[in-house]
């Protein structure tokens, strides 16, 4: 039914002489599809201190705290593995369970609770990533920032050290480093 509706709308527009553009080299991409790919790369280039929970074969859990801005693009990561660990994507609205993540994306919807989240994860071995403004400066691990219409990331070395998380030099080379809490 929906397809039929779309089809007929398309038909109308086509008869009006407006054909959808074709050829997609370098077209803009939805920001959260790109950010999902960033998260995947962060997970690939991060070493967590060895604990029982990050052994081979146990799932590497990527979590989203709050509203899910990725739509379905993050879920598609579950087809992949990182260092023989299958990826599991989970969505949380409860911090208690969010602690099970290896990487936690703090959604912009949680900006209001940011200091609380950061307090709670202080020195915990969970890599915290967010696009909330000044996330890395405020004590988060990796902050995604926009430059023009491209994405950059900033890391807070001190909080990473506190959390005993090591980022590979490949990642650090591309990062902007910030002083921070």
């Amino acid at each position: 039914m929906r397809r039929l509706l779309l089809g007929s709308i398309l038909g109308v527009f086509l008869t009006l002489g407006v054909a959808p553009g074709l050829g997609f080299a370098d077209q803009p991409v939805d920001e959260y599809r790109v950010k999902a790919a960033f998260l995947y790369n962060f997970a690939r280039f991060t070493r967590w201190e060895a604990t029982s929970k990050n052994r081979e074969m146990t799932p590497l859990v990527i979590g989203v705290l709050g509203d899910n801005p990725f739509r379905g693009s993050l879920r598609r990561l579950e087809a992949k593995t990182i260092r023989n660990r299958p990826i599991k994507v989970r969505f949380f609205d409860n911090l208690h369970v969010a602690h099970e993540c290896d990487l936690l994306f703090v959604s912009a919807s949680e900006e209001k609770n940011l200091s609380f989240v950061l307090d709670l994860f202080d020195k915990q071995p969970t890599l915290l990533v967010s696009d909330i403004p000044d996330f890395a400066e405020e004590g988060g691990h990796i902050g995604l920032v926009s430059r023009g219409n491209k994405i950059r990331f900033r890391v807070n070395m001190r909080s990473l050290k506190d959390a005993r998380i090591t980022l590979s030099s490949k990642l650090l080379r591309l990062a902007e480093k910030v002083e921070g809490l």
């Binding site: 803009p28 991409v29 920001e31």
Partner: peptide
């Protein structure tokens, strides 16, 4: 990835 233009 850093070179992709994004829309939001």
């Amino acid at each position: 990835l850093m070179d992709i233009r994004v829309t939001s």
